[in-house]
Nucleic acid binder design. Structure first.
Lengths: 184, 184
DNA sequence: ACGCGATAATTAGTGTACTAACTATCTGGT
DNA sequence: ACCAGATAGTTAGTACACTAATTATCGCGT
């Protein structure tokens, strides 16, 4: 039921990596091993989450939209906001909203002040569906991370933050024009 | 050029998570924050890699196949092996091999001993394409992980291994029938 | 020797995210 | 006042991975 595997299942042994390094001197075995392992674990977690979500008729993308709307109950968001925050294109967001609206989980409403824009909000049915899926979702998250105690989780987050700061430095992702404040 | 974002771009603040926890007692804020961050960082790294690979006309899937074949130069692999190791279905592997074969990067050959099977091997052109892409690939990996020193990388791997052991415990993935030894 | 169940590869059809191009609307400079 | 360029949302077409069903082959038990 998990929709996609995001990376190599059969991860290379450390010895294999070192053997390759003999031929390609650019290889730093520790870096490669860390990357591969990171992607592997992330992929497993994502697969478990996808699996759970699909049992509630959500995909990763649809769920993300619902969570974003839930997080901003007062301020209705427009599709462009949602796309930026979810990290998908506006075209993809159109498709996600089409699906969610068809099932009456969200509603699109015109904005009189700017007729190019729409406002998206959760319907009662959407809120209800979220309420049904949330507890299991967070139980799953807790279960998936049960292998680490609180200290280790903090240590992991610290390392990931450092790693992310470098990795994120280069893609040069602008926040997008319609990404004004409205922090949640 | 990066093909997909795998998770939320606008990650929630810790305060937001705690606020949700008031409504959904199942939430363990540390677990959720760690998961979200892990997926976020993995997604960034994967995007950077995809970006690089696509500049060499490889996708993640196609690259994985090439690497697997490179790792097993003596023993030709069949599509089923490759699918298991890459973590995709055999149907997907058919498609990947179709593409790679069309560009003469790999070749499919019949196996006389078992006429159901094929053997896949790198062509000279494939090996050459790999040789061209490899150095940049590993330079990228090294650059992406440059934020951590060797000790931190080891610490990260230790934590990820622990985490993965729990997360991986449940999907109940059998190795697949044609996954005999032949370790590399 | 034969046939049933298992396995390998493929094909057909679906879902999701992408890019590029399009329409409608807004805004700021002359 | 008006128009060029920016922005919001959509549509059309592509890519890739999935499931399910199909075809061919193999191998074991009787």
């Amino acid at each position: 039921m998990a929709k996609q595997m995001y990376t190599l299942r059969d991860i290379p042994k450390y010895a294999t990596i070192r053997a390759c390094a003999a031929r390609y001197p650019e290889i730093d075995p520790a870096s490669s091993a860390a990357c591969v392992l990171l992607l592997r674990v992330a992929s497993d977690i994502l697969a478990a989450i996808d699996d759970y979500l699909s049992s509630h008729n959500f995909s990763q993308g649809r769920w993300t939209v619902m969570m974003l709307l839930y997080r901003a109950p007062g301020t209705p968001l427009n599709p462009c906001d949602l796309a930026d925050r979810a990290g998908v294109t506006r075209a993809t967001m159109t498709g996600l909203l089409d699906g969610l609206e068809r099932e009456h989980l969200v509603a699109r409403e015109p904005v009189p002040a700017d007729r190019r824009m729409l406002e998206v909000r959760l319907t009662d049915k959407g809120r209800q569906a979220l309420d049904e899926a949330m507890p299991g979702y967070f139980r799953l998250i807790r279960r998936l991370t049960a292998g680490l105690n609180t200290e280790e989780k903090e240590g992991l987050m610290e390392l990931l933050t450092k790693l992310g700061a470098t990795a994120m430095a280069e893609p040069e992702k602008e926040p997008g024009p319609c990404m004004e404040a409205a922090k949640t």
